[in-house]
Design a protein around this nucleic acid. Structure first.
Lengths: 331, 331
DNA sequence: TCGATTGCTGAGATCGGTTGCAATAACAGT
DNA sequence: ACTGTTATTGCAACCGATCTCAGCAATCGA
C-alpha cells in the first residue's frame, strides 16, 4: 500500500513513466494492448494518480469551489448538496468554502483556489457582489454568480425570476380571497431580496391593496420584529409573504408564541422551497426555486465561460408549492 | 499578477530559492534581516506559496476532510460550520465531503484524501462505522469518528452521553408532571440512535411508566408514522421524546396536520439543540449537544493521534434547553 | 527495394516547492 | 593571529506527474 508513484507502475509494467501517464490521460495515444496491460497492472497495484502532482504540472485542476456565506442556512446547504452531485457528474470535485459573510475570507478563498489551479468557481453571495473586488483576482474572471450582479454583465449569473415568484405568491393568495397582504423582507443587500421586495411593492399596489412591509431587516430577529409589528396593527393583513423560507419559519414561530395561528389566523407563504418546509408546523406553502437546476446550470455556465469565454445570464422560473400554511382568510 | 513562483521572489530579493522557502516555513533558520527583506519583497509582489507544491514535496498537507452523509441535515451543517472555524484556527483547511450515505463515495473520499496527503480526517457517520473497512485504507488509521464505534476502541471518538441526555429529557418531562412518555426513534443503525433508544427503554421502565415506542424507523416518514400511531392509540402518551430535532420537527408537523397541538395537547422534546429549533413553531425544547465542542475536540484528538499515536475517547455532556414545546400535561 | 509517413514509446526538462549537505561567513577562545 | 564552532546561505536532488521532442519500427506508395 505504500508510496505508489507513476514510476513504480511503470517499472512493474515494463514501460516508461510517460507511457503510463498517457495510458491514463490520453488513451488514444497508446497502443491498446500496452494501455490495457498498464491499466491492469495499475489496477492490481491499486494505483491512482496524484491529483496534486497533476494539478501542479498541468496548471489546472478539477477542484471547483462553491463559495457560500453560511452552510447552516438550508438554502445554501441544499445548493451545496445538488452541486456536489452536479460537479462530480462532470468530473469535478466541489470544494465548499464558507465565508460567514467575511469579505476577507472570501479573498482568502480566492487566492487559495487560484493557487490550487481551480478552473473556475461558483459564488452564492449573501450580499451584493462587488464585481470590482472580484476582478482584482485573476480567479475573479472565472466565476459565476448565483444572483444578479449590479450594472455589470461581464460575469455570468444564474438567477430565479423573483418578480415571477412574487406574482405566483400574490396570485395564490388572492385566489384564496386575500386582499390585504403583508410582506417581510429577507436579508437586505442581496439582489434577490431587493428584487422580491420591489416586485411586491409594485405588484401589490397594482393589485389594488396597499403594501404593508412588516419588516425589512436583515438580521435573525427580522421574524420576531415582523410578528411584533403585526400584533400592534389595528388592521393586520390576512396573509403574509416572506422573502424566504427561513424568515417565514421565524415569523410563524414568533406569531405562534403570541397565539396567532397559521393558517387559521393568517396565511404565510415563503420563498425558496426548502425540503425542510415540508416538516414545518404547518407545512410551508412556498415559491419553489429550482435549486438543483441552479446548481447544474451554474457549473455549465462556468465551464462554458472557461472554454469559449462566453458570458451568459440564465433566469429560471420559480413554481408554486402549495402546502399547509395558507388558506382563505377568516370571515 | 502572473505566475509568481518562489524563484521569482528569490530573484527579486537577491537570494536563492531555498532561502525564500526557509524564510516562510522555518523562520528561525534565516537571519532576521534577510527574512524580513524577503517577506517584504514577497508581500510587495503579492506572493503566496503553492499549497500544492508544498504538499507534494512534504508529503503532508493541511487539508482536513470532514466526511458527512448529508449536509442538508442541519446537525451536520452546524458541525461543518463550527469545524471550519476550529480547523482554520489551527491552520488547517476543512474540506467538506458529502457521501449521501454511499459507502463507495466514502471510499472514494478516503483515497482522494490520502492522495492529497491529508494528515488526518474526521468522520461523522449516519450509520455504524465499519472499522474494518476503515482500516483497509492507510488513511483509515488517521481518522477520528464523531460517534461511538462498536467493539473497537482503536479509533479515537468523540460522543455525547446519550444516556445522560435521555435522563435530562425524562427528568424535565417528569418534573412537569408527565408520567406517560412516548419515544420516536431517529435513524437506526447509528450508535447514538441505538444508545438513546436503549436508554429510553431502560430508564422509562425504571421510572415506573411503560415505554411506548411510537416509531423506530429510519426514513423521512418516521415522523408521520409516529403521529399516525399516536392518533390511533386509546391512551396516547402526554409527552414525546424524539431521538433528534429533525424527527421532532416532523412529528410536530404531522401531529399539527391532524389538529394535535404542541405543547397544549402533547409535549415534545427533541435531541440535538439545533439553532433552527428556536425558529420552529413552537420553539423546540431539546437536549443540546455541544456541537462546537465536538468539532474542536475532534480536531484536537486527530492532531494528537497523529503526533503521539494516542487513541482517546471523549464523552461530552449534553444539556437541557427549555423552549416552548413542552409544558405540563393537560388535566 | 527505398525514402517518406505514421504510430508508439522513451528521454528529459519542468511545475513550485523542500531539505540534506557542503561552503562560506562570523564569532569565540586562547 | 589561529583554530574550532556556529550561524547562514547556496546547491542540487527530489516529490509525482505532464509534455515536447526524438528515435525507431512498421507501413505505404512508386
Amino acid at each position: 500500500m505504500a508510496d505508489l508513484s507513476i514510476d513504480v507502475v511503470a517499472k512493474a509494467a515494463g514501460v516508461h513513466r510517460s507511457t503510463v501517464s498517457r495510458a491514463f490521460s490520453r488513451p488514444e495515444a497508446v497502443k491498446s494492448e500496452t494501455r490495457e496491460h498498464i491499466l491492469r497492472v495499475a489496477e492490481g497495484l491499486g494505483y491512482t494518480m496524484s491529483p496534486l502532482a497533476q494539478a501542479l504540472r498541468r496548471k489546472t485542476s478539477t477542484f471547483v469551489p462553491l463559495i457560500v456565506p453560511d452552510i447552516t442556512n438550508p438554502f445554501f446547504a441544499e445548493l451545496a448538496k445538488t452541486m456536489t452531485q452536479a460537479a462530480d457528474e462532470r468530473g469535478y470535485q466541489l470544494l465548499l468554502c464558507v465565508t460567514n459573510g467575511d469579505p476577507a475570507k472570501t479573498d482568502g478563498y480566492f487566492t487559495a483556489m487560484q493557487a490550487m489551479y481551480a478552473p473556475f468557481g461558483i459564488v452564492a453571495p449573501s450580499t451584493k457582489v462587488d464585481t470590482e473586488a472580484l476582478k482584482r483576482f485573476d480567479f475573479g474572471h472565472r466565476v459565476v454568480v448565483i444572483d444578479r450582479v449590479e450594472g455589470d454583465t461581464s460575469v455570468p449569473t444564474v438567477t430565479v425570476d423573483s418578480r415571477r415568484g412574487i406574482i405566483l405568491a400574490l396570485e395564490h393568495l388572492r385566489s384564496l380571497g386575500h386582499t390585504s397582504i403583508g410582506y417581510v423582507s429577507g436579508i437586505s443587500g442581496t439582489h434577490t431580496a431587493q428584487d422580491r421586495m420591489d416586485a411586491y411593492l409594485e405588484l401589490s399596489a397594482e393589485g389594488g391593496n396597499s403594501p404593508v412591509v412588516l419588516d425589512s431587516g436583515s438580521d435573525p430577529d427580522t421574524g420576531a420584529r415582523a410578528a411584533q409589528h403585526f400584533l400592534e396593527m389595528n388592521n393586520p393583513p390576512t396573509a403574509i409573504i416572506a422573502a424566504n423560507d427561513m424568515v417565514a419559519f421565524a415569523v410563524i414561530s414568533a406569531l405562534g408564541k403570541s397565539g396567532i395561528r397559521v393558517p387559521e389566523d393568517v396565511s404565510v407563504i415563503g420563498f425558496d422551497g426548502l425540503a425542510l418546509g415540508a416538516r414545518f408546523n404547518p407545512a410551508l406553502t412556498t415559491v419553489r426555486q429550482p435549486i438543483a437546476d441552479m446548481g447544474s446550470i451554474a457549473i455549465e455556465l462556468a465551464e462554458k465561460q472557461n472554454l469559449t469565454g462566453s458570458v451568459d445570464h440564465v433566469v429560471l422560473e420559480p413554481e408554486l408549492l402549495v402546502r399547509a400554511s395558507t388558506c382563505g382568510p377568516r370571515k
